[in-house]
Design a protein around this nucleic acid. Structure first.
Lengths: 173, 173
DNA sequence: ACTTTTGATTTCTGTCCCGATAATCTAACT
DNA sequence: AGTTAGATTATCGGGACAGAAATCAAAAGT
């Protein structure tokens, strides 16, 4: 007479809802509701497809499957958000390293500056970006532009390294 | 005898809770609970301070107030997420434009390619990044490296522009 | 008269409950 | 064997509730 009956495995399976997973109820301020819902419904809006320029056979299309995977700029370029900041470049003393006027630098304060690192330094109250040289016990800031001269750091200078430049971003449009 | 009494204005004011705003209840999948809570409690984790290299007086410190404001790379570099993708650079034909081997390009398909734009193009099944020239009715792809020659586009070529390069990102570390 | 205490009131937050809906299983039926 | 219908269990969103928090106003204290 009875259909079914109490048994394991019966009923709606878990994780068959909208999110494919069990859910928790939380309170969200009204102002941030839209961004949270966007995060939930469409995943990370800024995880965008990455193409490898080396693979160019077969006339691929941007609408194809993205076998190279997806990339989020923030995650890719910023490893420690708490110790990272940006600097807008002034001057052309590092043009040989691909750092141009008005470029944006990503700087991490938590990295220990090593020989040949590009660093943000303050020398006598002046903010500069240079390549750090630690050769033979002396410290020097090396520009990458023949117009400028290397700057040897001496004990009487107010010298501080703010951080190590991890990336440079140049905008065309 | 009665203290207080029914009246308007009494009671806890609205918006005095944890979020300073009225809240709504939503369901969040367990797996995304931590990221949603991080978004709510600490704001945008990737909105980082921006310094202007031109302002260098007074020996500022990264721990000072950030009068230049905060910047989010995704918002700053990606205006239309739906039509934007990344390309990893292969080759050195655009080194004069600051585009090096293994750099990351941000490409927007929704921008109409104009004269002198840096574009991602497919010519005869080959993916290239070049500066677009539309002078005098003809179309050409101009490298920025004297080792390479300009490529004039003729009618018999399979030619397609994938998008306009809006930024180039070079990583040091 | 001024300050402090105390109860009343109202809102916030997290949790529980519940009905409607949805998805699956098993028995009954064709 | 294939279909149908009841049983079972999970999801989803709304209502409700207890405890905490914040404010008001009267009462009590100085």
């Amino acid at each position: 007479m009875v259909r079914g009956g109490k048994r394991s495995g019966a009923g709606r399976p878990r994780g068959t809802g909208k999110f494919g997973e069990s859910t928790v109820r939380i309170r969200v301020p009204e102002g941030k509701l839209s961004v949270v819902q966007a995060l939930l419904e469409s995943g990370d809006q800024y995880a965008l497809p990455l193409f490898d320029g080396r693979i160019s056979a077969g006339f691929p299309s941007p609408t194809d499957d993205y076998s190279e995977g997806k990339l989020d700029l923030n995650h890719h370029l910023i490893h420690r958000p708490a110790t990272t900041f940006f600097v807008r470049v002034s001057g052309d003393s590092m043009i040989g390293a691909g750092i141009h006027q008005d470029d944006l630098l990503v700087v991490d304060r938590s990295l220990s500056p090593k020989h040949q690192d590009v660093v943000i330094a303050v020398v006598d109250s002046e903010l500069t970006v240079k390549r750090l040289s630690r050769k033979s016990g002396s410290v020097a800031l090396m520009p990458e532009n023949p117009v400028y001269a290397p700057l040897e750091i001496t004990a009487d200078m107010a010298f501080e390294i703010w951080g190590v430049v991890t990336s440079v971003i140049h905008q065309f449009r």
